[in-house]
Each structure stands twice: as structure tokens, then as C-alpha cells.
Amino acid sequence: MTQVSMTVNGKPVSGEVEGRTLLVQFLREGLGLTGTHVGCDTSQCGACVVHVDGKPVKSCTVFAQDVAGSSVKTIEGMANADGSLGTLQQAFQDHHGLQCGFCTPGMVMSSAALLADNPNPTEAEVRHHLEGNICRCTGYHNIVKAVLTASGQPVAAE
């Protein structure tokens, strides 16, 4: 077992992990941050996306010990300081960009990373960026719409 320390959602945390402990296991089982989900075992579905030092990462694919000392942000850290939904989260609600909610944390984290890099993406850029996040409920329509709206751009779709 190894002791790891990192910052999660702005708070310093530490815990004992095995070499094989994945970041997502550390977050869910070690810290009780169960908003980050596991939807597959091949790094395809994207339900586990978190930010590590500002970059989107599939937390099922990195070891907890490899992000020691990093700053990690999860879906639990995305709301405004007063607890209200952030702009992107609010756009997901306003545009019905989620149904069962299971892929949603990964979708929000992945989309937030896109908007940080590219504040005015085209529809095609949004769709391309979300290729690593699978949703089975929405047909993606309202997710794409939510991301475009959150970027402040007009959306052509109904």
C-alpha cells in the first residue's frame, strides 16, 4: 500500500492505495465521491471523465498513485460556490441534455474541457469532441444543444 495525496475539488485529500488502485476507485470508494461513474472496462464510454490539472482524463485508465500531487476536479466540484448549477450544468438541465443521468457526469466534465480549450466550438467540433463519451438515452441531440448553448452561441436545432 502506498500513501497518496492530491487535491480534489479544491480540498487536500490523502489515502492508502494499492499499486493497481485506479483513480476512479480512489474517488468512489476511497473518498465516497460516487458522482464519477464506471460504465465500461475498456476506456470507451467516458462516464468516468474527471479533470486532472485541468485536462480531461478517463479516471478508469489512470492509477491513483500516478496522479499524486495533482489537482483533480470531479462532477461534485462543478457547481457554483453558492451550490447553484454552473453555466454548463444549467444548460444541460434547460435543454434536457440528460435522461438517466449515468453518463452525465462524464459528459459535463468532457464538455467543460472542450469549452475551456475552444470557447466557441462548431456543432461538428462538439460532436467530434464527445466521441469518447457514450450516451444511450438522448441520441445526443440535447447534449450537443446544451454545450453549444453554454458556449453562448445560437443553436439552429429545435
Partner: peptide, 21 residues
């Protein structure tokens, strides 16, 4: 009407079976 369930899902506070300890 906007969905009331969305707030918990968008903030990581949904409780799915595997989330329970």
C-alpha cells in the same frame, strides 16, 4: 417543466446501486 431529477444527476448526487456503501 424542467426535470427536478436533473439537479442531483448534474451534481454527482444521484444514488445508483453501485454508489451505496
Amino acid at each position: 417543466s424542467k426535470r427536478r431529477e436533473d439537479v442531483r444527476f448534474l451534481t454527482g448526487r444521484g444514488v445508483y446501486t453501485d454508489d451505496m456503501a
